[in-house]
Amino acid sequence: MSEDLAFWLSYITNGKHLTWYASFQFTIFAAVFGGTLAVVFGLIGATLKNSRFLPLRLIGTVYSSIVRGVPDVLFFLFFPLAFEQAVEWFIASQVCTPDMLAAQSAAWPPCKEANWFLGTPEYLILASVSLGLVYGAFATNVIHGALRSVPKGQLEAARAYGMSASQLLWRVHIRQMWVYALPGLSNVWMLIIKATSLLSLLQIADIVLWADRLGAPNFLPAVGLVHEDWRWRYYLVLFVFYILVTLLSEKVFEAIMRRAGRGILSEVRH
């Protein structure tokens, strides 16, 4: 019995497993950074959508409807690739000389010197930005709706006090908007959490990739077969992990909503 325990203890603390545990940082970073960016892009998008200037309003509307109209995976893959190419194209226009261009045989980049190598940190940041862009479109809609449900009387009162337009926006409108936006933003956050499972598509060695590697049939010449195909066990762990994260986020959002709703008389609080 104690031998069994010792085996399992050493099994789940071996080097590869420790790397797996460490890779949770990528998922957490992408969720937190992506979520923050989504709120920022949401605020920008909602402001654009509310703008009095037609082209800006169009940009806001097109952004929120086009990005939501295509699958998140597509945009999630497209944005980092397109960004990388755009940067390489810019470098190429600065660096490449005609003989460098002539020496290059591959389709891309234009010359070898213009190649921009992306490691895990770069991909992680790009992935977070694209999560922010995709879910910012969802947040745009949520915040746009929330801005419209702030009671008119509050804004009129603020105006009657002689507040300027920006004071009114920042001190009254956006402050009060959160109560109405929180239920929707909590939905967006749940979507972001679930989308963090896609990081491995951008060559980041995240929890999903490690679960696959660790679960694959493990054969050591010295020991023989350590374990057969255990992938489903590792994926089951991730399945439960994500459910627990959802549960935790729900509780946290409930607490935030209770706190944000203090002193506001409305039917928003159930």
């Binding site: 749940m190 679930k194 499972s197 896609l198 992938r231 994926y235 994500y242 459910i243």
Partner: peptide, 14 residues
């Protein structure tokens, strides 16, 4: 509803 579809795919397939 609380877990990613991506993980569900891997789980069922494995």
């Amino acid at each position: 509803r609380g877990s990613p579809l991506f993980i569900q795919f891997f789980m069922v397939y494995s």
